[in-house]
C-alpha cells in the first residue's frame, strides 16, 4: 500500500503545480495548503504556513547532551537552526540510507527549526472537511488529523506539539 502511494506521488511530482491550480479552482469549501513528506514510510502533511524553505544536504553540527532526536545545529546563511529528526521524534528507528533526505525549515511561534525527513513530496490543498479526527486510542501523539486525498493517506502533523 505504502509503496504504491509513494510511487504515484513520484509520478505526480512533475505536474505538481498544475495539480495545485486545478484543486484551487475545484475546491468549494475552505481549504489550506499543506506540504507533504515521508518519514519512516508514512505520509505526513504540515500546513504550508509554517514552512520557510526546504534544504537538501547540509552539514549538521552535533550538539552534545541533548535528546537524540535533536541531530544538532546547522548554519543556514548565518542563522543557527536546530535540526530535529522526524523519525526519532516520533519514536521510530533512525534511517540508514540518506539518498533523498531533506530538511524542512519550519517556523513555529518564532522558533525556527529544521525537520529532518526521509523525503519531501509536494504541496497539496486539503479541504477542511476532508480532515478527520485521528482515532481516540491513537499512539501518534503529534498527529491531529488524518486525510485521504487522491488515494493517499496523510497524517496531519501538529508542529506546535513537535516543539514541546
Amino acid at each position: 500500500m505504502m509503496a504504491q502511494t509513494i510511487q504515484s506521488n513520484q509520478a505526480d511530482q512533475n505536474d505538481m503545480f498544475y495539480e495545485d491550480d486545478n484543486t484551487a479552482v475545484e475546491v468549494v469549501s475552505d481549504s489550506r495548503k499543506y506540504l507533504t513528506f515521508v518519514s519512516n514510510g508514512l505520509g505526513f502533511a504540515i500546513p504550508s504556513d509554517y514552512v520557510i524553505e526546504i534544504i537538501n544536504e547540509h552539514f549538521i553540527t552535533h550538539l552534545p547532551r541533548v535528546p537524540d532526536y535533536i541531530r544538532g545545529i546547522i548554519n543556514l546563511r548565518g542563522q543557527i537552526i536546530p535540526i530535529m529528526d522526524a523519525r526519532l521524534r516520533m519514536g521510530h528507528p533512525a534511517s540508514d540510507h540518506k539518498k533523498e533526505t531533506c530538511i524542512i525549515v519550519i517556523s513555529v511561534n518564532d522558533n525556527s527549526i529544521g525537520l529532518f525527513v526521509d523525503k519531501v513530496l509536494h504541496m497539496i490543498d486539503i479541504p477542511d472537511d476532508a480532515i478527520s479526527e485521528p482515532p481516540v486510542n491513537n499512539n501518534q501523539e503529534f498527529v491531529n488529523g488524518i486525510t485521504h486525498i487522491n488515494n493517499v493517506v496523510y497524517l496531519l502533523l501538529d508542529c506546535e506539539l513537535l516543539l514541546k
Binding site: 550538539l63 552534545p64 548554519n75 536546530p82 522558533n111 516543539l163
Partner: peptide, 28 residues
C-alpha cells in the same frame, strides 16, 4: 543558540552559545 534548545538545559551543561567559523562550520 536557538531558544528552543535552551529548553534542554544545555546552558547548565557548559554550552554558552555557538559561533560560525571561517569555513562556515559551527563551533560550540
Amino acid at each position: 543558540l536557538p531558544n528552543y534548545l535552551y529548553a534542554f538545559n544545555i546552558k547548565k551543561l557548559g554550552i554558552a552559545g555557538c559561533t560560525i567559523l571561517g569555513d562556515g562550520n559551527i563551533s560550540i
